[in-house]
Structures are given as structure tokens and as C-alpha cells.
Nucleic acid binder design. Structure first.
Lengths: 121, 121
DNA sequence: CAGTATCCTGAAAGATACTG
DNA sequence: CAGTATCTTTCAGGATACTG
């Protein structure tokens, strides 16, 4: 139950908005989860199924961080633990815009990058 | 003299433009160097002086990667090793646009982030 | 000034087994 | 289905000394 406000738990290196963003969500997985949410995925298993292959413990941890940061909303049907749904908050959608910017840049500037052939699922 | 095309040397996890971008420049330091270049810094020592405190070996390594990726140009006065100048290539400036997008997002969405008080140097 | 070369450590990630 | 709990590994990053 360790209290950690920020992202991957790193210390904030400076007040630079770029450095802070990196310290918050600049890890290997967070933005890919945001991507999946943008694509309409809502469930734990769907994130797990993405081709990059995140581990369950990492996914769980990142979802909690994103929730704590106010980017992700978790709707839990808690007595039936099988209907949990994740979605982007308003704030998370703004982060999603940034993720889309990254996608746009990647598509234009990195050879052999393509949008997911599964069309979002 | 190990040959590594990509960024931090990670394997490409997928063809997703977001994942590839992260694998390429999604580490703790690369985009901060791009930031410094945007701010007009050109010399090794200037990057070292940034408040986040990058180590010499990491800086050296990242500059090489960014150069190999075509984002950074190194103008070396090689017999006088004291006049090396780094700058963004055309391609690097496009990456710079992405970095600015991150800065904008950070400024709007992360409390207590501010632009560098040193005004770019 | 602009790096290289080592050594070392911690934390992030990965693998796996298990649970309500 | 949606996680938790461990254990292990790796490797990116940090510290430091040295060099042309």
C-alpha cells in the first residue's frame, strides 16, 4: 500500500514539463495502455492480448498508476470480478491526444510502422 | 563497435508507431537532449550542465544514437576536439515538434511544471 | 572541452504460480 | 476474468577515473 503519486515512482528530476512527463508516463508500457484504451479496449484481458505482451503484474501496476493520476477510470463490478471496465477520463483523453501525436510522428518518420491490422481489437 | 540501429538498443516489440517510438527514443534522456538542442544548446558541456544531471557516458551514448538515427548532426573540428557542435537535422526538427507537443501537454496538465528559468541556456 | 573506459547497483521488467 | 504474490534477471543508468 505504498503511496506513490507519480508514475513509475521516479523522483521528479526537474520542473521541466518534458522531464516531468517522462518521469510520469515515459516508461515502456503506460502509453501503450493509453493507446489500447484509445482503440476501444476496456478489459484487462484485452490489454494483455496486445502483441507487445505485457505481463499481468506490470499491467496491473500501470493501470493503478494511471488511475491514481486521473487518466483512467475503473468501473468495477466488484462482487463479480469479471466485469471490470477501464476507460479514459477527460484528462486521459487529453493524454490520448499526445499519444496520437506520437503515433502520427512514428507513422511519418519510422519505416515499417503500421497501424494495427486488427483494426482496434 | 557493436552495431545497433535502434535507439536504446531495444528490440522492436511490434510495428506499432507508438511502441516503435518508445523503443527508439522513449528512454530517460534522449528527448531531453532534443529539448536542449531546441533551446539552442550545441556543446557537450552545455548538455551536461542541464539541471537533470546526465552522466557523461550516457550523454555520449545518446548523442551517438541520435546521430545514427539521423536526428542530430555533429560538426566536429576533430583535430581541435574542443569545437564540436551538435545540432538538429531536418528530421531532428520534426522530432523536436513532437517534443514541443510533450512540453505543451506537460505545461497544461502537470502542476508545477515551468519553462526553464534560464531562458534557454 | 569532449569525450572513453570501468565498475557497480537498483529498480524495472519478466516469468510463473496462484486466487476469488 | 481480473487480478496478486514471488522470485529472478537484466540492463539502463550512475559514479568515477582517466585521456587527447
Amino acid at each position: 500500500m505504498g503511496r506513490r503519486y507519480r508514475g513509475t515512482g521516479r523522483q521528479r528530476r526537474s520542473n521541466c514539463p518534458i522531464a516531468c512527463t517522462l518521469d510520469l508516463v515515459g516508461d515502456r508500457w503506460s502509453l501503450l495502455i493509453v493507446r489500447d484504451l484509445l482503440l476501444g479496449k476496456t478489459r484487462f484481458d484485452e490489454f494483455l492480448a496486445s502483441e507487445e505482451g505485457i505481463a499481468t503484474n506490470i499491467l496491473s501496476s500501470r493501470l493503478k498508476v494511471l488511475e491514481n493520476l486521473g487518466f483512467v477510470d475503473r468501473k468495477g463490478d466488484d462482487r463479480d470480478g469479471r466485469r471490470v471496465q477501464y476507460s479514459l477520463t477527460t484528462s486521459g483523453k487529453l493524454l490520448g491526444k499526445l499519444v496520437q501525436g506520437i503515433a502520427d510522428w512514428g507513422l511519418r518518420n519510422l519505416p515499417q510502422t503500421t497501424l494495427a491490422p486488427d483494426g482496434g481489437k
